[in-house]
Write a protein that binds this DNA or RNA. Structure first.
Lengths: 152, 152
DNA sequence: TACGATTTAATCGTACACGATTTAAATAAA
DNA sequence: TTTATTTAAATCGTGTACGATTAAATCGTA
């Protein structure tokens, strides 16, 4: 009785599933961020793109995809929408025509402060303790490692 | 310096965002479950529906939605697909014609053991400790409470 | 140099996910 | 009883998300 899933009796209950707890929490975050970001004309995944680019402007679509764990099937249309909304632009590399650099537009720099401030306020309003926060981060990262390593 | 978001310096970094850690972990779970469930002709959200119905067969679409935190915009087409694949059927209430009961078909009962066994095996292959598991569950539930209560 | 393999994006098809609107049924109020 | 409100599903539009395929550019090696 040391491992998860050994006692099949009541393990397969929605409430006891870690996968569901994560699924639901992700949904809650999406809702919270959506409410904050909507006034800026941003979706939650688009905000993650901005976070990545504020750190590393001008990276390639491929690298952005690796940073966010997203494929081109998701990113290409998303970047197209963000380009249409003036957040960024695409620029094909001259050295290697296969690559596309993603570059932030002025709007993304100009709105950064306002956006992060609002997000920060909203997160603070949840009263999450610093301990709780970093503990969870640590555990989630550990769990991710295990989920990824499974392939072996 | 007690609260999250106070030090804006490097807090708005993808790697330090709890929301992103959850987002990514949810994605990893989705991939893992997808690989297990694909042979059964199930998606991960459809598996969650089965988990809910194995516990409470015959509940209404509304109650199922509340259990899974999903609206009819998501559930109606999903249930339609699962009905087409023989997992369940819909039955409109005679007492209250607005309500629709969701009832499992034989296939869902027959395959339950095989599905849960496979899922259990796959989760075990990740070597998640029981402590780790329940700790995370507890913390995620706490966090969810805080995210939901925020509305005030 | 030529040509097969690899890399990078774009495209396509399917399936969530959500807010908003619509429709029909049931209930409450006037 | 008639009307207004509420409730439950279905529908619609937009936006992820992913695997598979396609197309073009580059690279490796003979």
């Amino acid at each position: 009785m040391k491992n998860i899933g050994d006692s099949v009796h009541d393990f397969f209950t929605l409430k006891k599933q870690l996968c569901f707890a994560i699924y639901e929490t992700a949904g809650e975050f999406t809702k919270l961020y959506t409410s904050v970001l909507h006034p800026f004309g941003l979706t939650y995944p688009q905000y993650l793109v901005l976070l990545a680019l504020w750190e590393q402007d001008g990276i390639t679509l491929k690298d952005l995809g690796e940073t966010l764990s997203l494929g081109t099937g998701t990113l290409t249309p998303m970047i197209t929408r963000m380009e249409a909304n003036g957040w960024l632009r695409k620029e094909r590399s001259r050295q290697d025509e296969r690559r596309v650099f993603i570059l932030l537009e002025e709007k993304a720099h100009a709105e950064k402060q306002a956006i992060t401030k609002k997000v920060g306020q909203e997160i603070q309003s949840c009263h999450i303790e610093l301990d709780e926060y970093s503990q969870l981060m640590k555990q989630l990262n550990q769990l991710q490692q295990k989920l990824k390593q499974r392939k072996s």
